[in-house]
């Protein structure tokens, strides 16, 4: 399984902080995983289509073509605003 995490307004809008997704051919990249999750329904599609959405694969900010494997932790979140 791929452990998927959501933070900040992405988490709030989806109403979920974590979900588990079965690894497959379709989820073999960060973009593939995003597309698979976004296909759930209209709301999820909208939230996960945000043009400023960031992805971290195994706790490192990553590009959308980064490979994703079974057992990975993948997080989707908006631009960071700490400090």
């Amino acid at each position: 399984m791929i452990n998927v995490l959501f933070f900040a307004q992405v988490r709030e809008l989806l109403g979920e902080s974590t979900i588990a997704i079965e690894a497959s051919e379709a989820t073999s990249t960060a973009e593939g995983l995003r597309a698979q999750i976004a296909a759930k329904d209209e709301k999820w599609g909208k939230v996960l289509a945000a043009d400023k959405l960031l992805v971290a694969v195994n706790q490192t900010i990553s590009s959308w073509d980064t490979p994703v494997e079974d057992g990975d932790e993948v997080a989707f979140f908006p631009p960071v605003t700490g400090g």
Binding site: V80, G82, G83
Partner: peptide, 26 residues
């Protein structure tokens, strides 16, 4: 350190005020 923290560390601010709560925009 503060410049990099603000743009790279995964923190997010939710502000509460007279107009309700808002996630701070980067």
């Amino acid at each position: 350190l503060i410049d990099f923290l603000k743009t790279k560390a995964p923190f997010w601010k939710l502000e509460a005020g007279d107009k309700g709560s808002n996630w701070v925009e980067a």
